[in-house]
Amino acid sequence: MEVDGLVTALERIEHAARDFMHPAHKSDAPSVLLDVLAECGRALGHPYAIDPGLDDARNEASRHCAAVQENLSAVMEEIRQLHMTVSGLLPSLVRIADRE
C-alpha cells in the first residue's frame, strides 16, 4: 500500500474518532467509527519502513485501532441486548401501571 493510502486512512480514522468523541451532531458516530476502523485499520497494519519512529507510532495506532474496534463492537452488542431486554419489559410494565 502506498503512503498516500495510509495518510487517507489516518485522516478518515481521525475524523471518525473526533465525531465519536463529540457526537452532538452525529447520532450515527459509533457505527461510523466502527466502519472506518474496520476499513482503514488494515492500512495501519502494513509495514511502510518510512522511518523507525513513524513505524513505532503506526504500530501503536494500529494496536489502539484494533482495541477500540473490538471494544466498541462489544459495547454496541451490549447496547443492542439492553434495547431488546428493555423493549420486552416495557409492554408488561405499562400494562401493570395501567391497572394501578
Rank of each mutant, 00 (worst) to 15 (best):
V86S: 05
P91R: 02
P91Q: 03
D56Q: 13
S87R: 13
V7P: 01
R95P: 00
Y48A: 05
E70W: 00
H83M: 05
A38R: 13
Q81H: 09
T8M: 08
Y48W: 03
H25F: 11
R95T: 10
G5A: 12
M84H: 07
A43M: 08
M84K: 11
E100L: 10
L33Y: 04
A24H: 07
E100K: 09
G88C: 03
D28L: 08
A29I: 06
D4R: 12
L93A: 03
D56V: 02
A16K: 04
S92E: 10
S62N: 10
I96F: 08
M84C: 02
M76R: 14
E39L: 12
E60H: 11
S31L: 11
C65P: 01
G53F: 04
P23V: 07
E100S: 05
A29W: 09
D35P: 00
I13S: 07
L82D: 12
D55C: 02
I79V: 15
L33F: 04
R12C: 02
A49Y: 11
P52D: 13
D98Y: 01
R99Y: 02
A97N: 06
S31R: 15
R99V: 03
V75A: 12
L93D: 03
A74H: 10
R12L: 09
A24N: 05
L34S: 13
R58V: 05
D55M: 07
E77H: 13
H22I: 02
R58Y: 06
A9Q: 05
L37S: 06
V3L: 15
Y48V: 02
S92Y: 08
V7E: 12
S73M: 05
G88K: 02
Q81C: 07
A49R: 15
I96C: 01
A24Y: 07
A49Q: 13
H22W: 04
E60V: 07
I50N: 10
G41A: 06
A16Y: 04
D55F: 01
A29Y: 09
N71K: 15
L6N: 11
A97P: 00
D98P: 00
A49I: 00
L6S: 10
A38T: 11
D98R: 11
D4H: 08
G5R: 14
A61P: 00
P91V: 01
H25N: 12
L10E: 08
N59T: 12
R18Y: 10
H46W: 06
F20C: 01
Q81P: 00
N59E: 14
I96P: 00
S31Q: 15
E78G: 05
L93K: 11
A74G: 05
R58T: 05
P52F: 01
V32I: 14
I96Y: 07
N59Q: 13
D28V: 04
S27H: 10
G45A: 09
S31K: 13
G88V: 02
S31F: 12
T85W: 04
D51A: 11
L89A: 11
P30T: 06
D51E: 13
H22A: 08
L72G: 02
V36Y: 02
